[in-house]
Design a protein around this nucleic acid. Structure first.
Lengths: 178, 178
DNA sequence: AATCAAGGTTCAATGAATGAACCATGCTGG
DNA sequence: CCAGCATGGTTCATTCATTGAACCTTGATT
């Protein structure tokens, strides 16, 4: 979406944020990263984005410091993409976008619920815990399936995301968390 | 950015929100609407977007129920675009995006500050008042220029936005608020 | 030696964005 | 009455991005 050339003249921090995460697919990649997706192929099957676009977005997010690319196996060499601190800071953006879509767009059925893992309370619109009155870091968020979730998805990533799980915990076994 | 065809299969409310506001320029149009911009020409000079794209975005936002197009003068007939309730609900999205851009992207200088008009306190990251501990509706937000703001912009819209002003108050005289 | 998995790249076709030019309506000044 | 102008667009050719299919590479597995 964004082109440095055009938005650059805008001093506004919203415009500058959109230069980084405003392109097509980008925020969905970030969303999946919060859900624990880390590998190229998992992003691919879950998003359904074209391979070339996914590769471009992952590279751009790494260059922007939102994702970190790191080796998780030496032989054969395989890399995974993990959210950096800068990426984790996007959690309120995803929360507010999702809250808006759920509240304001017709035909919304809750697909996933997000709870404060410490107390079980469902999060408020910005990712805060209404009971504890603290902002809940993504690592302390438990994601649970909602009524609107397809119970029998085709791809294995969606199937793995059916179970309740902590955000950021890797989808694939054999990876230590974050 | 978004194509109904592609994101539609995503049940996620984030994806559905991005179908509406995820295209290039769209969120900047909404941002300007919060700043009080209402007219085609004002959006045009402030955003610098191509005329055809602006026309397409305004129409799409009206169809999505984010903006309301209404006649403000009969002769010659002139319409303006005003945020609906659904559009006003996007305020936290803009806040969180702006907060992320300001906090996480290098070289950020505060361009605008947003204060709770009732008490003067600067808003928190999600548009809440830290002093009053309430979410502040956009109509109660006062926007003040920050250090990073260009003091001598070329276009008249940017010049009008130099002065402290309440959000949503129309840029042009002769229009009653909201 | 053939096959497979992961993680890409390349390519042609399509669709969207851009910027310049043009158009329509209705007012306003001479 | 005519010329010009403000507003709010549309049209069009060019450029750029996206898409989906096919292919490639590396290293392990059978």
């Amino acid at each position: 979406m964004a082109l440095g050339k055009d938005y650059a003249q805008q001093q506004c921090s919203i415009a500058r944020a959109l230069e980084v995460v405003g392109e097509r697919w980008t925020l969905l990649v970030v969303r999946d990263a919060f859900y624990g997706v880390r590998r190229y192929n998992d992003f691919l099957v879950h998003l359904g984005a074209p391979r070339a676009v996914l590769a471009a977005r992952l590279q751009a997010l790494v260059e922007a410091g939102v994702l970190d690319r790191r080796r998780y196996r030496e032989s054969p060499p395989r890399d995974e993409y993990v959210l950096t601190g800068r990426g984790l800071a996007l959690w309120p953006v995803l929360r507010s976008l999702g809250a808006w879509g759920r509240a304001e767009l017709p035909g919304a059925v809750a697909v996933r619920h997000f709870h404060h893992a410490d107390c079980g309370t469902e999060l408020g619109a910005y990712g805060e815990c209404p009971a504890c009155r603290v902002p809940v870091p993504p690592a302390d968020v438990e994601m649970r399936p909602g009524a609107g979730l397809d119970r029998d998805p085709a791809d294995p990533v969606s199937r793995a995301l059916l179970a309740p799980r902590r955000l950021l915990t890797p989808l694939q076994p054999g990876q230590e968390p974050s």
